[in-house]
Simulated assay, not measured.
Amino acid sequence: MPHRYFTNELAAGRAALTGSDAHHLADVMRAKLGEEVVLCGPDGLEYLGTVTAIQSGRVEFTVTKGTTSKAEPDAAVTLFAGYPKQGKLEEVIRHSVELGVTEIVPFFSRYCVATPKKEDAKNERYNRIAAEAAKQAGRAMLPHVSMPLLNFAAVCDALQEDYDLALFFYEGGGAPLRTVLRPGCAKKIAIVTGSEGGFSVEEAEAAKAAGAVTVGLGPRILRCETAPLTALTAAMLLTGNLE
């Protein structure tokens, strides 16, 4: 199977890789002229690229017409994840990208154990983790990890932007997920899960006021790193994106 790379330099039948990806292809994989790789552009399409030039820090290609990737779900899902402690967010990012998430937005809330610390540096690492997971999973678009929102009010503001459906997963229970999701029900979905401490009653009320549907994940209490992956898996299944 050809190696997979993401690039923003892709237009008019030509493309290029620079930086670490160019180094990996040219120096680590020892690519040759005429070799083929899969290139994914900012349009979310897949292209078959043929190496035409290898320079220091740059590899150039001719590319075929872009095709739609079977790996991309037909619903764009943004995961709002309560910020966990002890590096667990990396696990959530890696596996949610494998499952098909489009964007991950960490947030701090009333009962978060973690507190903001060196978030700029962490965000760079989080996006590298997302990129590697996207390559491994055969994704055609590069999911983005946003800088964390500093309180739950900011989450509620974000939910009112342009989502077709917002789901608030509450440990206090809610509607069964199968009554809310079905194939083709929404093109842009928001999923909100909490941190170790869960949500306060006031936060649950605020989410409802922001237009989110309160849903549950059954009678068991899931860990904060388990809940978002369970919610995302269930959403993908019920919308027909695990078939």
Rank of each mutant, 00 (worst) to 15 (best):
M1C: 02
P2R: 09
A12P: 01
A12N: 15
R14T: 15
A16R: 01
L17K: 00
G19L: 01
G19S: 11
S20I: 02
D21I: 00
A31G: 07
L33W: 00
P42V: 04
L45N: 13
Y47H: 14
T50S: 14
V51W: 02
T52L: 01
A53S: 15
G57T: 02
V59N: 00
V59G: 00
V63P: 06
V63E: 03
K65M: 10
P73S: 09
D74R: 07
D74M: 07
A76R: 15
T78E: 13
L79M: 08
L79E: 04
F80D: 08
G82A: 10
Y83T: 10
Y83S: 06
Q86T: 14
G87R: 09
L89R: 02
V92R: 05
V92N: 05
V97Y: 13
E98S: 15
T102Y: 13
F107V: 15
F108P: 08
S109Q: 11
Y111M: 07
C112H: 11
T115C: 02
P116Y: 09
N127C: 04
I129Y: 02
I129P: 01
A130E: 05
A133Y: 10
K135P: 02
A137S: 15
G138R: 10
A140K: 03
L142M: 15
H144C: 10
S146Q: 15
P148F: 04
N151V: 06
A153P: 00
A153C: 04
V155I: 06
V155E: 08
C156I: 11
L167M: 11
F168D: 07
F168L: 11
E171H: 12
G172F: 13
G172L: 12
G174D: 14
L177C: 08
L177T: 07
R178T: 14
R178C: 07
T179K: 13
R182T: 04
A186Y: 15
A190L: 14
A190R: 11
V192M: 11
E196F: 10
G198V: 07
S200K: 07
E202R: 08
E203R: 06
A204R: 12
A206F: 05
G211T: 07
T214C: 14
V215N: 04
L217C: 08
G218C: 09
P219S: 13
R220T: 12
I221F: 04
L222H: 06
T226G: 05
P228D: 13
L229N: 09
L229V: 13
T233Y: 12
T233C: 12
A234E: 14
M236R: 09
L237M: 11
L238Q: 12
T239Q: 05
G240C: 10
